[in-house]
Amino acid sequence: MNENKTKLTEEEKKLFGDLMPEELDEIISSGLNRRHFMKLMGLASAGLLASHLIGAEQLFARSAEIGDIADLAPAAIENGINVSFKVNNTAKKVLIDSRATLLDTLRERLDLTGSKKGCDHGQCGACTVIVDGKRVLSCLTLAATCEGKSVITIEGLAKDNELNPMQAAFLKHDGFQCGFCTPGQICSAVALMKEAKEGQASFVTADVRQNQQSVILSDEEIAERMSGNICRCGAYPNIVAAIKEAQTGKNVEQTWLFAG
């Protein structure tokens, strides 16, 4: 990944100069993670991101510090296993320690840090990813068991810079605050849409003996089925509203008043 070290173009310099004039020198001297940068620029030029949205501090942070991720394979791998699998529809082959979880492999080895580690013990849902179409916890999945499987993470949901309708609905309904549980919530919600289509039941389903297809989920059903994803900030009502809107495609108005 030598492209990381590619010098900034004049245009890029200008952008940084605008966003953070006082940091420009440092960015130039430390090199830039061009991949991230180009991605964000692409979004900006496509009108997906207003220029002010590019958190300059974060662009800076990425560009100045990120080195060659490909070199991250740790020096000490015990019981090494070669795993080939698809991540976000791209084939990956990694040599891993047998102990490596899918979550750590995504985050530390493939630099896909969107999947979060909130507990590492299957208690929070922040690490939820979609494996072969089903939502699972990547913290309790050994990467070694993923041979030949297809993993979709939060980074793989938007297609050609177009947000997945679930992502867009989360944005619209303020379905997050700190954003840390968000990738897990969204992956979980995306998989939930499929489960509902298949007519899967939940603990609050009125009569599980009745098999149904394409269930339109009530608030209660959404809440029960999303209960494996904990949000400490308390964005639950907004998340439920977002999922409802994504499922029905209809505008969901939230009941609230503003007298000020």
Partner: peptide, 17 residues
């Protein structure tokens, strides 16, 4: 946008070499 796409990097996600 960063938060719903997983692009937002938190303190433990700067994978320096």
């Amino acid at each position: 946008y960063e938060k719903v796409t997983g692009a937002a990097r938190y303190a433990g996600e700067f994978n320096v070499s």
